[in-house]
Simulated assay, not measured.
Amino acid sequence: MTAENETPSACAGSSSRAVRDALDVLTGKWKLPILMAISIGAIRFRKIANEIPGITDKMLSKELKDLEINRLIERTVLPTFPPTVEYSLTRHGRTLDKVIAELSAWGAAHRKEVTGN
């Protein structure tokens, strides 16, 4: 029997579960672009919105809350009047830097494969 025909090991089940967990947190049209916008450093809501064409304020607010719940970003209210709010990646959120870089490289290679450009 070749490796291609072998029955998946028990490890494949836990690996599959881990991939599903990651996709549950990161899927959707907006989460990765938001994380990429925030990766440059602490950034305000309006600047994030300006960095992501097509996102509505309502959707950005919803996605920011979701990313905060998943401990990928943190929201800091600065003591100004009116209050200023900034968003930044958490230490846990920074662990996605390599993942996003790999996705970017794969996306570029895939585009070249499919379109020839």
Rank of each mutant, 00 (worst) to 15 (best):
A18P: 01
P53C: 08
V85E: 04
K31E: 04
R17Q: 10
Y87G: 02
M36A: 12
K58E: 14
S9C: 08
H92M: 04
V77H: 06
A108I: 13
K29E: 08
P53A: 12
T76I: 15
A10L: 15
K29D: 02
T2Y: 10
E4H: 13
W106C: 07
I34V: 13
G116H: 11
A12S: 11
I34A: 00
T27A: 07
R71F: 02
H110D: 12
N117M: 14
C11Q: 14
I52K: 08
L60S: 03
A101D: 12
P33R: 03
D66F: 00
E102R: 08
H110A: 13
I34P: 01
S61L: 10
T80L: 08
I73F: 01
T84W: 00
L96E: 00
L103S: 02
V85T: 11
G116E: 06
W30D: 03
A105T: 15
R71K: 14
A42L: 08
W106Y: 15
S15H: 07
D21V: 00
K58Y: 15
E113C: 06
I100V: 12
L67Q: 00
G107N: 12
E68V: 01
A12Y: 15
R46S: 13
F45Y: 15
T56M: 12
W30S: 04
M36T: 10
E74F: 07
P33G: 05
D66A: 01
L32R: 04
G41M: 05
E6V: 08
F81D: 09
S14F: 12
L64M: 08
I34S: 02
N117E: 12
K62M: 09
T80A: 14
N117Q: 15
R75G: 04
I100T: 06
K29W: 05
K29V: 10
W106G: 06
D97H: 07
H110G: 02
K112F: 13
I73S: 01
P79K: 07
L35Y: 06
K47P: 01
A42Y: 10
R44I: 05
S39N: 04
P83M: 02
I40A: 15
I55N: 05
P53Q: 13
M1R: 10
P83T: 11
L23N: 09
P33Q: 10
K112G: 07
R94A: 02
R46Q: 15
L78D: 03
E6A: 14
A10H: 10
D66Y: 00
P79Q: 06
M59D: 03
L78H: 10
N70D: 04
A101F: 06
S14C: 05
W106E: 13
I69H: 01
T27S: 10
C11L: 14
T2K: 11
